[in-house]
Amino acid sequence: MKERTAVMMLMLTAIVWGSGFVMTDIGLVYLSPYQLMAGRFILAAIILISIFSYKLKNINKKVLIKGAILGTILYTGFVLQTVGLQYTTPSKNAFLTAVNVLIVPLIAFVIYKRKFDRFEMIGAFAALIGIGLLSLESSFTMNIGDVLTLLCAVAFAFDIFYTNKFVQKEDAILLTVVQFIVAAILSVIFMLLFDHIPTSIEAGGIYSIVYLAIFSTIIAYLLQNIAFQYTTATKAAIILSMEALFGMIFSVLFLSELLTFRMVIGAFLILLAIIIAEVKPTFRKKQANLIGKLKN
């Protein structure tokens, strides 16, 4: 039951992140990437501290260290993704970021010697192909933006993997609070280094910051971090890859993006990947029961 709830929470996270593509696109009309990220993380950190102030007394050294690691990894991913987007196309940026769905099981294998799960790997490849059909528009050539985006995918993969690992022993909400405090501090530092503090922000920019902070940051990451307690990192990465699917849907609805047959096929493959990852436990249970009956 808890695993089913976790899947629903991750699906909601993917939906919210998909809508975030639209709000980010709107926000970048009024603010630079560094200003938008700073506004997003600062507001998210302030709200989280206000809501969960009663939990702060339970923060210990382990939570601070693990939350700081997650916050640093998360902001690194966002910076690499944003800077990479300046040198590549949005479609390639989205596709290369989604490569994290394959990197997560590799991290588990290299660092912790966790064997590859064939169902999860099949689902991961199906999701990656589907995202490629959704995102890629022209010939696939590499440039500095693509390299930075691949590094961003590595960062997001480590974020998924270590969040999944840390929430097994620490309070998921406290980890999220520390994570975004650290991300907010880093966002201010990078904004001051590479940009400037905006003297005024138009309404469209404010709406984008508020939406991204509350929905794409606070709600989405709380849902993700809590859900990670009840599922594997690879399975979570596959489900979260639906972000690309929902990003397409919201882009078609609100940004008038043209829906093509190839995009429909890509969406189908992503859904198939989720089904493969989700039915695996049921299939194994039935297989074990069948073997048991044959032995008897």
Rank of each mutant, 00 (worst) to 15 (best):
K2S: 08
E3V: 13
T5N: 11
A6M: 04
M9F: 09
L10V: 08
L10T: 10
I15F: 03
S19A: 15
I26D: 02
G27F: 12
V29C: 10
L31P: 07
L31V: 02
Y34S: 10
Y34A: 04
M37I: 14
M37F: 12
A38G: 05
A38I: 07
A38C: 15
A44I: 12
I51H: 07
I59N: 04
K61I: 14
K61E: 11
K61D: 07
K61T: 15
A68R: 00
L70D: 05
G71E: 12
G71Q: 12
G71L: 09
L74M: 13
F78V: 05
T82P: 08
T82M: 13
V83Q: 09
L96Q: 05
T97G: 01
V99N: 00
I103V: 15
A108F: 02
F109V: 00
I111Q: 09
K113Q: 10
R114K: 14
K115R: 14
D117R: 08
E120P: 02
I122Q: 06
A124Q: 09
F125R: 00
G130R: 09
G130P: 08
I131D: 03
G132W: 05
L136P: 00
S138P: 00
S139H: 10
N143E: 09
I144H: 03
D146S: 14
D146Y: 10
L148K: 06
A155E: 15
F156D: 01
A157G: 03
Y162Q: 02
F166L: 09
K169L: 08
K169E: 15
D171V: 00
I173R: 04
I173L: 10
V178N: 08
V182W: 14
I185S: 12
S187Y: 11
I189M: 04
F190S: 11
L193C: 09
D195S: 15
D195L: 10
H196A: 14
I201C: 05
G204C: 05
G204I: 12
I206L: 14
V210W: 11
V210H: 04
I214S: 10
S216G: 01
T217C: 13
T217Y: 14
I218S: 11
A220L: 06
Y221F: 15
Y221K: 01
L222Y: 13
L222C: 01
N225M: 11
I226E: 05
I226Y: 03
Q229F: 07
K235W: 08
A236G: 13
A237V: 10
I238G: 03
I238H: 00
I239D: 03
L240Q: 08
F246K: 05
G247A: 08
M248I: 12
M248N: 01
S251V: 00
S251A: 15
L253D: 07
L253Q: 02
L255A: 06
S256Q: 14
T260F: 00
T260G: 07
M263R: 10
V264A: 12
I265A: 04
G266Q: 10
A267C: 08
L269V: 03
A273M: 01
A273L: 04
I276Q: 12
I276P: 06
A277F: 10
A277G: 01
E278H: 14
V279H: 06
P281H: 11
T282M: 12
K285G: 02
L294T: 02
N296A: 07
N296H: 13
